[in-house]
Simulated assay, not measured.
Amino acid sequence: MIHPHTYIHPNAKLATNVKLDPFTVIHQDVEIGEGTWIGSNVTIMEGTRIGKNCRIFPGAVLGAIPQDLKFNGEKTYVEIGDNTTVREFVTINRGTVDRYKTKVGNNCLIMAYSHIGHDCVIGDNCIMSNNSQMAGHVIMGDWAIIAGVCAVHQFVHIGQHSYIAGGSLVSKDVPPYIKAVRTPLSYGGVNSVGLKRRGFTLDKINHILDIYRIIYTKNLNISQALEFIEEEFTASDERDEIITFIRESGRGVIKRYAKGSVEED
C-alpha cells in the first residue's frame, strides 16, 4: 500500500490500510488514520494528524508552519477529522500560540487550491469550494458552505448551516442559517434549501425566517432586535444559537443589502 518512491520519516505513525502514492513526503510526528489515501506529490509536515478514511489529493501541503511573523517555532498542530476530502493543491497551516492547532472536522470537502490559515477551526460537514482563501483564526460552523473564489478575513466567524456566495469578500461575521450574497456581502435570506436538505421541518425554517425578519427588516438596532426576539419568540435551539452568535460577534455581523451602500470596515 506504500509506493517505494514515497518517503516516510521513521517516527511517523501510519495505521493499517493507509495507501500512499509515489513521490509523497511524510515528515516526523505525523499520524494518519486507517483507510486513508494520500495521493502523489503530497507533503505532510510535522504536527499533522489525519483521521480515518480521508482522501488527500495530489499536490496538497498539510502542516506547514503558519504564515505569521509572530510564530516562534512553538509546537503546534493540524488536525483533520475522519472521512474528510482535501483536493488538489490545498494548503492547511499549523496553529500558533492562539489555539495551538488548526482543525478541520469530519466529513468535510476542501476543494482544489483552497487555503486554510493558522488557528482556523472548521466544523463537521463543511464545504470550502475551489480557490477560496481563509486567513488565520477563522471559525466555520457545522454544515456551512463557502462557494468558490471567496476571501475570508482573519477572525471572522461563519455560523452553522450558512451559505456564502462565490466571489465574496467576507470581512464581517456571517450569522447561522442564512445566505450571504451581493457586494458588499449582505444578508440574502434564510438558507432554506440547505436546511430542507438537512432535515429541518418547514415550521423550524419559518421560525428562523421570522427571527431574521426582526433583525433585518424591522428598523431596530441589533440590541433592540435581540431583546424583542428573547421576549416574543418561543425558546428554541435555533433562536438561542442566533442570539448568542450575534451577541458574541467580534467583527460585527453582515448587514441587509442597501442599494448604493459602501462597506465600512
Rank of each mutant, 00 (worst) to 15 (best):
L69I: 14
P58F: 10
G81E: 15
I92T: 01
T96F: 00
G81H: 09
T91K: 02
E74M: 06
F89L: 06
E88L: 05
M111A: 11
P58Y: 09
T102Y: 04
V97W: 08
G73I: 11
N93G: 01
E88I: 03
F57W: 09
T102I: 03
T96V: 10
L69Y: 13
I92M: 05
L62V: 08
N107R: 15
N53I: 10
N53W: 08
K52V: 12
E88D: 11
V61T: 12
T85E: 10
A60R: 10
M111C: 09
L109K: 12
C108Y: 04
V104H: 03
I65K: 08
R99W: 07
A60M: 04
N83Q: 12
A60S: 11
R55S: 15
G59Y: 11
K75G: 00
P66Y: 10
V97Q: 15
T91W: 01
V90R: 02
I80D: 07
I110D: 00
Y77C: 12
V104W: 02
G81K: 13
K101L: 12
D98A: 14
Q67K: 14
N72F: 13
E74F: 10
N72Q: 13
K75P: 00
N106R: 13
V61S: 10
Y100C: 13
E74R: 04
R99I: 09
G59M: 09
A60W: 08
G63H: 02
Y100N: 15
K75W: 01
N53D: 15
Q67Y: 04
P66K: 07
C108R: 07
K103S: 11
V78C: 13
R87I: 06
V86T: 07
Y77G: 03
R99M: 06
I92C: 06
N93A: 03
M111Y: 07
C54M: 06
T85R: 07
F71L: 04
N107W: 12
K70H: 08
T96E: 04
V86L: 10
V97K: 13
G59C: 11
D98R: 10
V97Y: 04
L62M: 05
T96G: 05
K101T: 14
N107E: 15
G59T: 05
V86Q: 02
G51I: 11
Y77A: 04
K75R: 12
T85I: 15
M111W: 08
G73D: 13
T91F: 06
T84E: 03
N93S: 08
V86E: 00
K103V: 14
G59S: 09
M111H: 07
V61L: 06
A64P: 00
V61M: 01
V90M: 00
D68N: 13
E88Q: 09
T85P: 01
Y77K: 13
T76M: 09
C108L: 12
F89S: 08
R55P: 08
V90I: 11
T102C: 11
K52T: 14
D98L: 07
T91S: 11
F71V: 07
G105A: 12
L109C: 12
V97D: 05
G105T: 14
P58E: 02
G95Y: 07
N107D: 15
G95K: 03
I80N: 03
